[in-house]
Nucleic acid binder design. Structure first.
Lengths: 166, 166
DNA sequence: GTGATGACGAAATATTATTGCGCAAGCTAG
DNA sequence: CTAGCTTGCGCAATAATATTTCGTCATCAC
């Protein structure tokens, strides 16, 4: 089992690759202040240890014709673990559902959905989601516009925190 | 102005890079069935035209100590455009807020937040978010667990749709 | 001390990215 | 129908990167 705690260089690597996942290893190495070979070794290790789950191009959904984005709040009738899992599995199989998170509070799940147009979404909503087994309530909200969309880790907060405890 | 409609190869490129943003151009070219140089030219064009907004490593926030993820539903007191914009700008400056989307319906905004622990989030919630100018109501829900998290475009749906209209 | 361990970096090699052409297909005007 | 233009492909050469190899140094346990 690897010791696995990260040093400052590892954190810099993660921050840089989160900001630009296609940066060359040479550029990355120079930014974090070491030479290319150890830098690449660190990246591989971070990938293997799961700190980096993958790399993805950020594709503009609207440009591709997915004009509609919706958040759906879903309440189930039964919250037994088997029923929760079953619903999660169904979400994984619905391509229009891009995210599904289980929440505490009045609502059981929040879903982020996309669709080419409203009628496609409405059809999905009425024929699939609302109609699905064990689904009690569904409340949807259209996304009017996005103001910030930077999933990931706020590395500046992380560094502050480490400096304080140091 | 570029003609800008995408052909099947472009869509395949986008799908592949969305799935693996660090794929080499050689590998990508072979997957989409053309040679490397035109493939690279297409990628550059897609970037320039905004179909690809960027590339990002998907970093595991929990592994880095951000144990808490929260959705916050925010209602404002005034929905005048200037006030909406002001709130959005504030969200962009809060590092714990990773996403901010304006919604229709009862709630004005949904925010996705992360924090190292509950007390850090509570402090942010009470001292920053709830206390901010023009903020009326805030309801928060902790993410218990994530079941699906694949932001992006469902290219299979897109292809189906194009085949139908063809 | 001294041998084991881990990580670095220079140098060599293997892969990729990128550039520079030439060619062919599709279009258009005459 | 055909010259001339446009667009996009791919080969081949070149420039950059990635990756491997290996020698060195610091640390640490004994």
């Amino acid at each position: 089992m690897p010791s696995s705690r990260l040093d400052e260089i590892d954190r810099k690597i993660l921050a840089e690759l989160q900001a630009d996942g296609r940066m060359t290893n040479v550029e990355l190495a120079s930014r974090v202040g070491i030479s290319a070979p150890p830098c690449l070794r660190r990246v591989r290790t971070l990938e293997e240890q799961g700190y980096i789950r993958g790399y993805h191009a950020d594709v503009d959904a609207r440009e591709l014709g997915f004009e509609v984005q919706v958040y759906a709040m879903v309440g189930l009738q039964s919250q037994a673990e088997a029923d929760l899992s079953a619903f999660e599995e169904r979400c994984r199989n619905w391509p229009l559902v891009r995210e599904c998170h289980m929440l505490n509070g009045e609502v059981d799940f929040i879903l982020k959905c996309v669709a080419p147009d409203l009628s496609t979404f409405q059809r999905f909503l009425t024929e699939e989601l609302t109609a699905a087994d064990n689904v009690g309530s569904v409340k949807t909200s259209l996304v009017i516009r996005g103001a910030k969309d930077e999933p990931g880790v706020p590395f500046d907060v992380l560094e502050e925190r480490l400096n304080r405890s140091a």
